[in-house]
Design a protein around this nucleic acid. Structure first.
Length: 916
RNA sequence: GCCGAAGUGGCGGAAUCGGCAGACGCCCCCGAUUCAAAAUCGGGUUCCCGAAAGGGAGUGUGGGUUCAAGUCCCACCUUCGGCACCA
């Protein structure tokens, strides 16, 4: 973009006369500078970006920060996230990219409902107020958002489209209903979120939480399991390896075999009796008990079979099996224990015998069926064949319950273990034994052959299993997007037709936290008409969507936020997508990012996006760490900690809180900033005190983006001092008398230019490639540390040809480099040097490689691996020269003595190591 | 428990590909400036021994590979993130 014709702006800062009447001084007053520049940016619509026109070749760059939940006030974690995003957005715009940088609100969610319960506020009012407050808090930080694209997900203009997407998913079989377990409080008659369960009790009334089955909506994300897994390959390099690993493990693909153990007659009878005459038996029990195993080679070592407490056979055994009472008691006990604890390896291997038997598919032997705490219904088939000799958990279970152990694998070059002497299972691959026709085969071979044999008997097959489960999207809550379905009198599940969308969330509800979802109790909401025949009544679905739904597609909506013919304009979305840089907390590494990836693929497959669109929505991902701070507390009469806000502690470490005045404050651990621990710093107060630029620079300087950031008041002072130093120094440079151009450059001038261009090089790489903003700022600090004495030298009139020009060049390049970090200050300083327009509209400066070049560098010289001195040599000096120089160095010669070097290791430009 | 990270001076951190540990900032100390203070400017600042020159130790712990390890390998400890209804 050419800069011609742009007006220059007047500086907003005012010169202050010093009281002694000497030269006017300039004081860095952010409060004077920042509002002026923000209003100039706004007036010129600097941050609004036009959509690429069809067919136009645009070098676009989509920078996206995870949209916030409007919880009430902005916290430092948001400020950090958005400061990182803003540096990236501004940097790439200066690099000539056409940048999209939007912001919005993830406005549905539980806290709004909790506020309604606790304070009687309507969730809609509470949410809208919070959005207004938080938008107001973001404004003074000077982020370069295109606010004309703002989105709030609780608006019908937004959620109507996710209703439409849902009906399309329903058509394709991607959405379905099945029974699932939820936390249930009998007293409040309501479903509880996991975080609302404290020690197995309801957080509100304290009564015991039970597991209850409900018919719920699921999305078939498992259909995309393979693609979600394989897609990770394409993200290598752009996404952190750790996130890719977490997603890979979450999907948890494992290859193995499904093996069917036929039921004995008695087991069949018990199973049939339990399901009753009208219901068909579960698919899991149709012709036998299916297990999933990755070790088909150990099938001859099966001594029992373990099923999950939720397994249909366990249920049946509890109702009518030979050991029904004990099984029923066990099932009741397990209903109160979370999967996480049940599956833990150190957990007791609780279990109970069902008294039922199945037949071994190859030997025909009767195998007892047990119910085990560690078997999870959600994985595989909810049943495992137990091979205690070769599986750690089965081994522990067998020992605990006195079940037989049978060795069927031996190491290749050792004898088979003796059962009586075994202390643990031997899980390594080896050679099969005591396995009939398979004896002598390797584990790898055996797995295939066993599976093939079972397949020929129609009692098994090779298969893959995923840890990933289908996504449960139903919530029995009010403040969410209504699921657009009605149920006909005949029980038919009927999607709401497009013409009747959106299904509006009614405003007139009673929110008490008791008696189930407010939508169920609403007088008219659930009363609907049958779309097939409007004369017939139908019952409307009262569940709402999981709020991960909204955040799974919002990044598309930003591309055409006002489009009213569909969720987004496919052409515009196609032009902007994929997101080039996504930035957010590491806590979203698995769920949000997996759901969003899934949605993006579904949107393409449903035709909402062009078929040829890139199948991964986020090309690059930056996961930032949390903002933490020391907690401080005093002890109350019972010795319990009473946490204090930072402002409740005076400099002497004494409390100022009511009731605890003057009490010595104890310092607790450093924890994530949270209201409950009161270790919070209000962004507003910091901006008021130091200015937005200082807050931004500190956030970026204090830690690398992916690491935890520990807030410190002293640290922010340092950031402020740096900016004040930049301000003063550049004003001093601008005020220098103009000298005629020097014909030659002094050593000082060359050294300064070298530092300048090396700094530009470092900042360019640190921001553009490494995304290490702390080191970029450190580099600029180093430059300023050299500008200060150089400026003083010129001010003092000491001759140094070319230095004044080098200083001017430095000032000019520095404001460009600094502008993504401290945009208000940079534009202000730019205006004092008669710069045109805004820095954001200018091009990022180019490194003068010649000026940056370093001819001689210092390298360390080691004697026997210990550094004994340093020499200054050319970067590519040959070994002979380096060695000769080293010998001349007294400190090195002293260590060498007259010993002959045994070996010399020389890496040019890095190290010289002499071994004697 | 499982999956993924992190651990470096008094503090936040730097060291980009195995090559000078501690860049930059904070704190603290000394000096200049000032009637004085703040601010600013200059200097010092890993620890131990030493007056100094210099020497020794040192990147969570224990081992290993290497001419050379904060960086690679093995084991362990501690802290943090996620674990499917918090977002």
């Amino acid at each position: 973009m050419p800069n011609a014709g742009r007006p220059s702006f007047r500086p907003a800062s005012i010169a202050v006369e010093s009281p002694d009447g000497k030269a006017p001084r300039h004081k860095y007053e952010p409060a004077q500078i920042e509002p002026v520049w923000r209003s100039r940016w706004k007036k010129s619509k600097l941050f609004e970006v036009a959509d690429p026109k069809p067919g136009e070749l645009v070098d676009k760059f989509y920078v996206l920060e995870m949209l916030p939940y409007p919880s009430g006030r902005i916290h430092m974690g948001h400020v950090r996230n958005y400061s990182i995003g803003d540096v990236i957005a501004r940097f790439w715009r200066m690099r000539g990219k056409h940048v999209l940088h939007p912001m919005g609100w993830d406005a549905f969610g539980m806290p709004a409902e909790n506020a309604a319960i606790e304070r009687g506020r309507h969730p809609a009012d509470w949410t809208h107020e919070n959005i207004a407050t938080m938008r107001g808090q973001l404004e003074p930080l000077g982020f370069s958002y295109d606010w004309s694209r703002e989105v709030a997900t609780c608006e019908p203009e937004y959620y109507r489209w996710e209703q439409q997407i849902f009906t399309r998913m329903l058509d394709k079989g991607l959405a379905y209903k099945k029974s699932a377990i939820a936390n249930w409080c009998n007293r409040c008659e309501t479903v509880l979120a996991n975080e609302q369960v404290e020690d197995g009790r309801c957080w509100r009334c304290g009564s015991e939480v039970v597991q209850r089955e409900l018919d719920q909506w699921f999305l078939r994300i498992t259909r995309y399991a393979d693609e979600l897994l394989e897609g990770l390959e394409a993200l290598k390099g752009g996404w952190p390896d750790q996130v890719l690993a977490m997603q890979r493990n979450w999907i948890g693909k494992s290859s193995g075999a499904r093996i069917r153990f036929p039921l004995t007659d008695e087991a069949k009878r018990v199973a049939a009796a339990a399901v009753g005459p009208t219901q068909t038996p579960s698919a899991l029990l149709a012709d036998g008990l299916d297990v999933f195993t990755t070790r088909a080679d150990t099938v001859y070592g099966v001594t029992f079979v373990t099923v999950a407490p939720e397994h249909p056979l366990a249920r049946a055994a509890a109702k009518g099996g030979p050991n029904a009472a004990a099984v029923a008691a066990f099932l009741e006990k397990m209903a109160k224990v979370k999967d996480q604890e049940r599956a833990s390896e150190s957990a007791p291997k609780d279990g109970v015998a069902t008294g039922l038997f199945v037949r071994h598919p190859l030997t025909g032997a009767d195998v007892p069926v047990w119910v085990g705490s560690f078997v999870l219904m959600g994985y595989g088939t909810g049943a495992v064949m137990a091979v205690p000799a070769h599986d750690t958990r089965d081994f522990a279970f067998a020992r605990q319950h006195g079940l037989p152990i049978k060795v069927v694998i031996k190491p290749v070059e050792a004898a088979a273990p003796v059962v009586a002497e075994m202390k643990d299972a031997t899980t390594e691959y080896g050679v099969m034994l005591a396995s009939g026709e398979f004896d002598g085969l390797s584990s790898q071979e055996g797995k295939k052959k066993v599976a093939a044999k079972l397949a020929s008997m129609k009692l098994g097959e090779e298969t893959v299993s995923y840890r990933l489960r289908d996504w449960l999207v139903s919530r029995q809550r009010y403040w969410g997007c209504p699921i657009p379905v009605v149920y006909g009198e005949d029980g038919a599940v009927l999607p709401v037709p497009d013409s009747e969308l959106p299904v509006l969330l009614p405003r007139d509800v009673q929110i008490t936290g008791e008696g189930g979802s407010p939508l169920v109790r609403h007088p008219t909401f659930s009363k609907a008409k049958d779309p097939r025949d409007p004369r017939k009544p139908a019952r409307r679905e009262t569940d709402t969507f999981d709020t991960f739904w909204e955040s799974s597609w919002y990044y598309h909506r930003y591309t055409s936020p006002h489009f009213d013919q569909g969720p987004f304009d496919p052409a515009v979305a196609g032009a902007w997508m994929p997101v080039d840089q996504y930035i957010g907390g590491i806590e979203h590494a698995v769920m949000h990012l997996l759901y969003a990836r899934f949605f993006h693929k579904v949107l393409i497959d449903l035709g909402f996006l062009p078929q040829g669109a890139a199948r991964e929505p986020f090309k690059a991902l930056l996961t930032q760490g949390m903002v933490t701070m020391q907690t401080q507390f005093v002890n109350d009469a019972k010795g319990m900690p009473v946490y204090l806000y930072p402002e409740q502690v005076d400099e002497g470490g004494k409390a100022r809180a009511p009731g605890y005045e003057g009490v010595a404050v104890e310092r607790g651990r450093v924890e994530k900033m949270s209201k409950s621990k009161r270790n919070v710093v209000d962004p507003d107060a910091m901006v008021a005190k130091y200015g937005a630029d200082t807050v931004r620079v500190f956030m970026l300087f204090a830690s690398p983006p992916e690491a935890e950031l520990i807030w410190s008041d002293a640290g922010i002072e340092g950031a402020h001092r740096f900016l004040a130093r930049v301000f003063r120094t550049i004003r001093d440079i601008v005020a220098l008398p103009k000298a005629p151009p020097a014909a030659e450059r002094s050593g000082d001038a060359m050294a300064l230019r070298r530092k300048l261009h090396q700094t530009l090089q470092r900042v360019t790489v640190d921001v553009g490639e490494r995304q290490q903003f702390n080191t970029a700022i450190a580099a600029m600090m180093e430059l300023v540390n050299e500008l200060v004495p150089a400026t003083a030298k010129v001010q003092a009139g000491q001759p140094s040809p070319g230095l004044a020009e080098a200083l001017r060049e430095s000032a000019e390049l520095l404001v460009h480099m600094l502008s993504p970090f401290a945009p208000h200050l940079a534009d202000e300083l730019w205006s004092t040097m008669d710069g045109e327009g805004f820095l954001l509209s200018r091009r990022w400066p180019t490194v003068d490689e010649e000026a940056a070049r370093e001819d001689a560098i210092e390298i360390g010289v080691q004697v026997n691996g210990k550094v004994r001195g340093r020499i200054r040599v050319a970067k590519d000096a040959p070994e002979g020269i380096a060695l000769a120089l080293a010998r001349e160095e007294a400190s090195i010669a002293a260590h060498l003595g007259d010993k002959m070097p045994k070996k010399v290791v020389y890496v040019a430009g890095r190290i010289l190591n002499i071994i004697v």
